[in-house]
Computed example of a mutant assay.
Amino acid sequence: MEDLILYTNPMSRGRIARWMLEEVGVPYRREVLTFGGTVKSPDYRRTNPMGKVPTLIHGRKIVTECAAVCAYLADAFPQAGLAPPPAERADYYRWLFFAAGPLEAAVTNRALGVKVPEDRRQMVGYGSYENVMDTLEAALSGKTYIATERFTAADVYVGSHLMWGLQFGSIDKRPAFEAYVEHLHSRPAHLRAAELDDADMQELQAS
């Protein structure tokens, strides 16, 4: 098996990638980078020129961007059952990249106080924050998982956005969102990943 290495920081989107790795259930090594320090080092930027985390190394392959990491791992390790069969991936791709595009952009702009004028909404991919929330709420209402009848990599990615947003107030608390993340919180892989990341955070704070 080719080596798997995750470059991450426990206060970053790297938590999404680690959860996904724990769901996959294969051995990997993690390298914790520091903001303003090793994440901007010339050595690391030869791997990820953006100087950001996470970055996944799989043998000679380099994967950045959390949605891509989730999709890549689901395909690279099909035995984990984290992607639907190719002919059944329409909703899987739809919601995985809805979260990577409209959801993240809308939440980030709102957190930054960016208000898109109503007559300019056609210029942004998400239209309005309210429209994004209403669309996601409708997709999750009465469902356990976002894309299929079983858990997939799309749930890792969408669920991570909702968990973070509900915790820090950047996403509205709606019953459909809270019911969805409550179920995901109890997944053994999520609990393991959170414990590992929290331990890394304590180590960083103590150093």
Rank of each mutant, 00 (worst) to 15 (best):
H161V: 06
E23W: 15
E88Q: 12
T148W: 02
A147F: 03
S186V: 07
V114L: 00
L56F: 10
I171N: 04
L82F: 09
E118W: 00
M50C: 12
R15Q: 13
K173P: 13
E137L: 07
F97G: 05
S141H: 06
R46D: 04
A179E: 11
Y28F: 14
S186A: 15
H190M: 13
A106T: 00
L33D: 05
Y126E: 01
H183M: 08
V63N: 10
V116L: 00
H183T: 14
L4S: 08
V32G: 12
R192P: 15
E31T: 14
S128M: 00
K52R: 11
Q79N: 09
A139F: 09
A105N: 02
G25S: 08
I171Y: 06
P85C: 04
R29A: 10
R46S: 04
F177I: 05
I16S: 15
I5A: 03
P85A: 07
R150C: 08
E118Q: 00
E195A: 15
D197A: 15
N109D: 03
T152K: 06
A179S: 13
T8I: 08
W95Y: 15
G165V: 07
A176I: 07
L21M: 11
E23F: 14
M20C: 11
V158K: 10
M50H: 10
P54E: 04
K115M: 00
A90E: 13
K61T: 07
P85L: 03
S41H: 02
A138T: 15
R192W: 13
W164A: 15
I16A: 14
V63D: 08
W19G: 06
G159T: 08
T55F: 02
L112Y: 00
A105D: 01
L162T: 07
Y129C: 00
R89Y: 06
H185S: 09
E178K: 05
E195M: 13
F151W: 02
S128L: 00
K61A: 06
E203L: 13
A189H: 12
Y92N: 04
P78W: 08
F97P: 02
F77S: 12
Y92S: 04
G59P: 05
T148K: 03
R46I: 03
L196W: 15
P175R: 05
A111W: 03
E31V: 12
E104N: 05
H185D: 11
A105S: 02
E2L: 14
G81Q: 07
A80Q: 08
P27H: 06
V156F: 14
A71M: 09
L162M: 13
N9T: 08
H185T: 14
E203P: 13
T144A: 14
C66I: 03
M1F: 12
D198I: 03
Y7A: 01
E130L: 02
G101F: 04
A206V: 14
L136R: 11
A100F: 02
P10N: 12
R110N: 00
M11L: 13
A206G: 08
M11R: 14
H190R: 10
D172E: 15
Y93M: 11
L21Y: 10
P10C: 12
R18M: 15
M11W: 14
E31D: 12
M1A: 11
L96R: 06
